[in-house]
Design a binder for these strands. Structure first.
Lengths: 277, 277
DNA sequence: TATAATAATGACTAATCGGTCAATTGTCAA
DNA sequence: TTGACAATTGACCGATTAGTCATTATTATA
């Protein structure tokens, strides 16, 4: 096992017990049996560690569920969705606990909040497409409510599973939720969440960012980074913000250059919205 | 406004935005326009502040809902339960946000965790008694699941209300949840949470309150309060506890007098249960 | 075996935290 | 105006944090 994996594994145990903020780097390295310096050979910061953990598990979680859902017949679909999710949560209960504890609102790192929000929306999207496939046009008015009900029930029962120390019958649990969601899908008539509401919620998510703020962030990022294509792209973007002279296609390309760099995700996101791409 | 109230008010704003742990005492005192020392004249510690906030709002919340539920006809009961809760959350949105952020698992103070757990169980208990009253013997197998569904749906929709900056139609929301819960109560057959399961998780809830405890609380409240009908009522209630001599109807009326005073919600709740009203 | 390259260490720094307390300011009766 | 008392202040304390880096240990190579 690589040192990076060791740290991620041991840190996850502590995060699940105590939470992210409450766990110190020293505790993590003690628990791994390594020195503090060794930690910083694997991760640039404590934030990068939680980033890695969230990315590692969330991509797995989402792709797992997505695959199962895409390869299951409709008559078993809802059950598979619940059962797979609960099983995955049960299997990676430490990560699931971290996920429950550190809801989007508790982190202080803006990039991290954005990341959690992004994954949350991805899960919502997958759930919505499942609901649409299952019930079609019948639930066109209530489909968003149905998604929220699934989310609410799953969240609450997951909490029960994770934090009560009683072993649960996940098949029975999944069956009982299938019954409930089917009931709601077939008989509920009052729609609370409309498409307009969903759209009006998405809007304020990206708050207008100013030229000055972007310049400040770019300057800071450029200082931080080592020589690379990404750094060169940042420098060119900064110059363009100071004195617009580049073709829009070139600007888009420069943003694309930095989009996948782990430390540039947020700034590229802001740049994209600033230039209305 | 007393200094204590000022601090509680201003601190709550910061806690709602940043969370409890992430807000420093210095930030609170800056936001109040007082010195750090002055903070510690009003509160023994930062923990005592969050204790006060949680007690102040939770006692109000629980006794409010409990009273409404006890004094509403069955045909309006579920709607009233939802609507009152959402309205209270909306009215005290800063506290509701703190409540959502600092779920039982995030605090580090053991007493605080226990307190949150205790209030959580009180809410569950109130919800359960409502469910039993509404659906009687029909849902004897599924009543605990029903309570958990109510909790899950309410929690998820509350999150929507608090953290999306879109004004919501709380009446429509409550109606839609009434429809959903009625559907589940009438048609759901698969029980997942059994009485045994609940018992295996159970810990002592609200202990029976003693005459002495009530007297102590009354004495303290009487000292705190300014001259008013409410204070006079408290004094009479104290005398009645020391030497029972009043007609039960009078006692009920005296409790009614204090029920809506923000500082007497909890004591009135305890008195009501002490006298079996 | 000798040497260069790499990995790992832990004492250290600067910042921030909750909490304290000697010193200062404000109040009011004499 | 004075002086006793209460209220208020903010510099300061010890503890803890994330993160650094000169030093040491280990490994690979010649």
């Amino acid at each position: 096992m690589s040192k990076k994996q060791l740290i991620m594994e041991k840190a996850l145990e502590l995060f699940a017990k105590q939470g992210f903020e409450a766990t110190s780097v020293q505790q993590i390295t003690d628990h791994c049996g390594i020195s503090k310096g060794a930690f910083y050979l694997s991760f640039k910061s404590k934030d990068e560690l939680i980033f890695s953990l969230i990315d590692y598990f969330m991509t797995q979680l989402i792709s797992d569920i997505d695959y199962k859902v895409k390869n299951t017949q409709n008559n078993e679909l809802l059950f598979t969705y619940f059962y797979t999710t609960f099983q995955t949560f049960s299997q990676h209960s430490d990560f699931a606990k971290v996920l429950m504890k550190e809801q989007a609102q508790t982190f202080h790192n803006q990039e991290l909040i954005e990341k959690m929000y992004m994954y949350d929306r991805l899960v919502d999207k997958a759930t919505l497409s499942m609901v649409e496939r299952l019930y079609g046009e019948e639930i066109i008015n209530t489909k968003y409510d149905l998604v929220y009900c699934i989310k609410g029930l799953m969240g609450n029962y997951s909490k029960l599973m994770l934090f009560s120390n009683v072993p649960l019958d996940l098949k029975l649990l999944s069956e009982s939720l299938v019954e409930k969601i089917n009931l709601l899908a077939e008989h509920a008539t009052i729609a609370f969440i409309s498409e307009d509401f969903i759209r009006s919620m998405e809007q304020p998510a990206l708050k207008e960012v100013t030229n000055e703020q972007l310049l400040e962030m770019l300057t800071q990022k450029i200082e931080e980074m080592e020589e690379s294509i990404e750094k060169e792209s940042l420098i060119l973007l900064k110059q363009h913000l100071l004195d617009p002279s580049l073709n829009l296609a070139i600007v888009k390309g420069l943003i694309e250059n930095i989009r996948n760099h782990p430390h540039c995700k947020w700034i590229s996101y802001l740049l994209l919205s600033y230039f209305n791409f």
